[in-house]
Nucleic acid binder design. Structure first.
Lengths: 247, 247
DNA sequence: AGGAAGTCAAGAGCACTGCTCTCTTTTGTT
DNA sequence: AACAAAAGAGAGCAGTGCTCTTGACTTCCT
């Protein structure tokens, strides 16, 4: 369970949680816990409500008292995983002082990778191919799902404000007009001071970070091609840091 | 169907394909074609042999005469998709002259993205989360699965041999010893002349390319964040080209 | 205190899946 | 024409998501 998963208060008067509500919340938490175990063992697409019910010691239809259907259980697991990843990233980043922008970037990257290797099934649920027939409800997943990228771009923005960003490496590339509109919206929504051209570089290191992690978690590197995967990833992080001027 | 899918010749005397073998090969091709349609509509995990049998106009047990089980059908689809992607990349790259290394890199990137957007389910099968319980047989998938990355690194190597690679952008990053061993093996196996440090950059642009495509295909960009996705991708390709010195 | 309302577990049932088995029909070859 | 191999049909097993009904229990309000 994620530490930031708040106990939901569906009733208007959220003052006194009745014993019934307590028992209900506890059962739902058990379902999520068992669901995560099944997810880790069998994968997302093979997540079975009946199997969860068996492990819970209850008949399959009883689970539907707590979880509307299989999709809602997936949503619960999705939010839980997003928050766990966000917590891991926050904890790793907060270890370093605010001014150590490059160190914080590396800490963020390693935190993502370590969590992904520790929970490959959860990572696949978040960043792998979408589960067929399942559509994540944005109103419940957008906020936890954007924690990592927000943390990433805010770190870059803070480095820019502090004047700690080196001149971006590589030849200057012009930002086309249509793209500039999107970037302007992002900058204003997040209150960024970093210029547009660096926002695109931030997006690139974001997608590249997860691209590297996905290739490793999903087994695209093949069996014996890379034995030194820790070093490979650290090296790639260094290159990405250079792209955006985080030295 | 991929144009490079060779008709398999299981019999020792592969001289005269009997009418029975012809009919059998045709039926298998039909199964793969219908399987691809189902893959595109319902996704990989929901691929159903019974549904394929229905569309084939045959009872479910009959398809087991042609395909050993569901996993083997997945393998057939996997190889077919790998070859289709490889063909698309080859065709796009071969449009440009051999000496236009930067143009060929951009063509490769756009070919990957265009194919992925055209066949998102196939792309998810190749580069998304692994299908639970399915293990791709390496002896059948490694060769078609490495066509794109080989084409990518060979293009970089050719550019290096031609002296067309600019000095790599960004600060110099040392390659640790353990990683150097892996890189040496890759260089000798592929007969590369490009130095180790640039091989790591090649690996980075490889993973970054597919990271960007995956984020777009798998919907990680959210609903309305990026309206100018073509421009965003082209811009990212330009940045990646700069990483490796392809100007 | 007692009844109304709400909650929960259980079980049957429907339609679907992968896969195996047996039986019958088709088909190519001799 | 006869025969053997290949292919199709159908039943069946164990599993899935999900719905519906039934009975038991708890909580709350009058």
């Amino acid at each position: 369970m994620s530490s930031t998963a708040k106990p939901q208060a569906p009733t208007p008067q959220a003052k006194a949680p009745t014993p019934r509500e307590r028992a209900r919340a506890r059962t739902i938490a058990d379902i999520v816990r068992i669901g995560r175990e099944h997810l880790a063992v069998h994968g997302a697409a093979a997540l079975s409500l009946r199997a969860v019910a068996r492990d819970l010691g209850v008949v399959s239809s009883a689970v539907y008292r707590y979880v509307e259907n299989r999709d809602e259980l997936l949503t619960l697991l999705l939010v839980d995983a997003y928050n766990e990843l966000g917590d891991a990233v926050d904890a790793a980043v907060d270890t370093l002082p605010e001014g150590d922008f490059a160190g914080r970037f590396h800490a963020l990257g390693h935190a993502v990778r370590n969590w992904a290797l520790r929970e490959p099934a959860c990572y696949a649920l978040l960043f792998g191919s979408p589960v067929p027939g399942y559509r994540a409800p944005g109103e419940r997943t957008i906020v936890p799902g954007t924690r990592v990228v927000y943390r990433l771009v805010r770190n870059v923005d803070a480095a820019h404000r502090a004047g700690a960003l080196a001149a971006p490496a590589g030849p200057a590339v012009v930002v086309p007009d249509k793209l500039a509109g999107d970037l302007a919206a992002i900058r204003s929504e997040l209150g960024l001071e970093v210029p547009e051209e660096l926002v695109t570089r931030g997006v690139l290191i974001w997608t590249s970070l997860f691209g590297a992690v996905s290739f490793e978690v999903f087994g695209q590197y093949g069996a014996g091609t890379f034995a030194a995967r820790d070093e490979l990833f650290a090296h790639q992080l260094g290159l990405l840091a250079g792209i955006i001027g985080l030295v």
